[in-house]
Computed example of a mutant assay.
Amino acid sequence: MSMFKQLLKMTTPIFLLFYSMACVAEPSATIEVSAQIEAGCVFQQSPIGLNFGIHASTAQESTVTANISNTQQTWKIECTPNTPVNITFGNGKSVNTQTQNRRLKHNSAEHYLDYMLYQDANLSQPIGTTSDNTLTKQSTTQNYLLDFQIYGVVDLSQGAVNKMPGQYTDDVLITITW
């Protein structure tokens, strides 16, 4: 028998012995399982908007108001407790680029009604288009729903005495960051 075959016969049992000992020495092991949860918010688009109501084309009221609250039926902006949140209001689709006023646009014609947004019922804290357009709020452990209202004012005495009848609308983008 060749020397190679004898060496192979002798080393094979030794190798198998070491191999089986290694397998028996560690029959089980653990793995780490983990997750990290970060603060966050949920924001649903509201089917309810800021509605100034129905008025005659000859209406001349200078202060027509409307308001909307963040509730379970509207935006429903809810956040992790004690999370500071910035709510930023966009300019709207029909902003007047010269005056920076938000405007309601007639649905089928180039007719507009200026309007303003406010963060208080006294209409003393405007939500601007170039600055002051962000509200800072914080959820609490008792109320995950952010507590705020938005107030709007449209001046029907502006422009023509006899406004074009029809629906006037605008879309304002609301962005939340935390």
Rank of each mutant, 00 (worst) to 15 (best):
L7N: 03
K9I: 13
T12S: 13
F15V: 15
L16Q: 08
F18M: 12
A22E: 08
A25L: 12
E26Q: 11
E26S: 09
S28V: 11
T30G: 06
E32K: 12
V33I: 14
I37K: 06
E38A: 13
A39R: 07
C41N: 04
Q45D: 14
S46P: 10
G49M: 03
G53I: 05
S62P: 03
S62H: 08
S69V: 02
N70W: 04
T71I: 04
Q73P: 00
I77D: 04
P84Q: 09
P84C: 03
G92Y: 05
V95G: 06
T97D: 11
Q100T: 15
N101L: 13
R102S: 13
H106T: 08
S108Y: 03
E110R: 02
Y112N: 02
L117G: 07
Y118C: 10
Q119M: 11
G128I: 08
G128D: 13
T134C: 07
T134Q: 13
L135T: 11
T136E: 12
Q138Y: 00
Q138A: 07
L145W: 01
Q149K: 13
I150F: 08
Y151K: 04
Y151F: 15
V154H: 08
S157H: 07
Q158V: 10
A160C: 00
N162G: 02
N162P: 00
M164Y: 04
P165C: 09
Q167K: 14
I174N: 00
I174Y: 00
I176N: 07
T177G: 12
